[in-house]
């Protein structure tokens, strides 16, 4: 299947209806996590979900838009460049899902870790170039420690990312794995990449 055919197949109406809902899930779940003062972000559940159900590009767009909207509504304009990280997280989720990782919890964890590592690698240069290496939160102590012990800015930012991102993304992947388990087959089968999740899909005859 060619790339543009694949895109047309992924961007069905149900994909388009899901994306804004997933964007809102990202933001609201992120806020709930903040309310509960949990030591994680978990702000990409919707992104990973769309990647799994609809493909890499829909997932990536969900991530990027969530991030930009977040910057818009909170006034945290300087977080907008991290839309690139969110975009890549969506791509990763779509890619790993197409390899069937969500059919198996061990693979789900592995994919979460891998996505976390990739997210850290993408974030680090943005963090350094835009933010001067700091986030304005407690994790800056890690950056200070590694810079004090000889790391340069990009190294310190990457290490800081390696410490927080893989855990966060693994938890997010596990939550998505749980959500997918709880969804009815009937609902899952409406999405373009349902075969990412469902093990045996019943044979369908042509409809025309």
């Amino acid at each position: 299947m060619s790339f543009s055919e694949r895109l047309q197949k992924d961007f069905t109406t149900i994909t388009l209806a899901l994306i804004p809902v997933a964007v809102v899930i990202n933001i609201v779940v992120g806020q709930i996590v903040a309310t509960l003062k949990l030591p994680i972000y978990v702000d990409s559940i919707g992104t990973i979900l769309v990647g799994a159900l609809c493909g890499p590009l829909p997932g990536a767009i969900t991530g990027a838009i969530s991030n930009i909207l977040w910057a818009y509504i909170t006034g945290q304009i300087q977080t907008a460049p991290f839309a690139l990280t969110a975009f890549v997280i969506g791509l990763c989720a779509g890619f790993f899902a197409s390899k069937g990782v969500f059919k198996n919890i061990a693979w789900t964890i592995a994919a979460g870790l891998a996505t976390g590592v990739i997210a850290a690698l993408v974030s680090a240069p943005i963090l350094v170039y835009v933010n001067g290496g700091v986030t304005g939160t407690g994790t800056d102590a890690i950056v200070a420690y590694f810079q004090a012990t000889g790391a340069n800015l990009i190294q310190a930012a990457t290490i800081q990312g390696f410490i927080s991102d893989p855990i966060d993304k693994t938890i997010s992947y596990l939550i998505v794995w749980l959500i997918l388990r709880g969804m009815s087959k009937r609902l899952i089968s409406q999405f373009p990449r349902s075969q990412n999740i469902l093990t045996e899909e019943s044979q369908v005859e042509g409809t025309s």
């Binding site: 899901l18 809102v24 709930i32 609902l187 409406q190």
Partner: peptide, 17 residues
């Protein structure tokens, strides 16, 4: 907290489409 929220939202997606 999040389960009813997420499932509630997902249930609606088909009708929205």
């Amino acid at each position: 907290l999040i389960a009813p929220l997420v499932y509630g939202a997902l249930e609606n997606v088909q009708e929205r489409a």
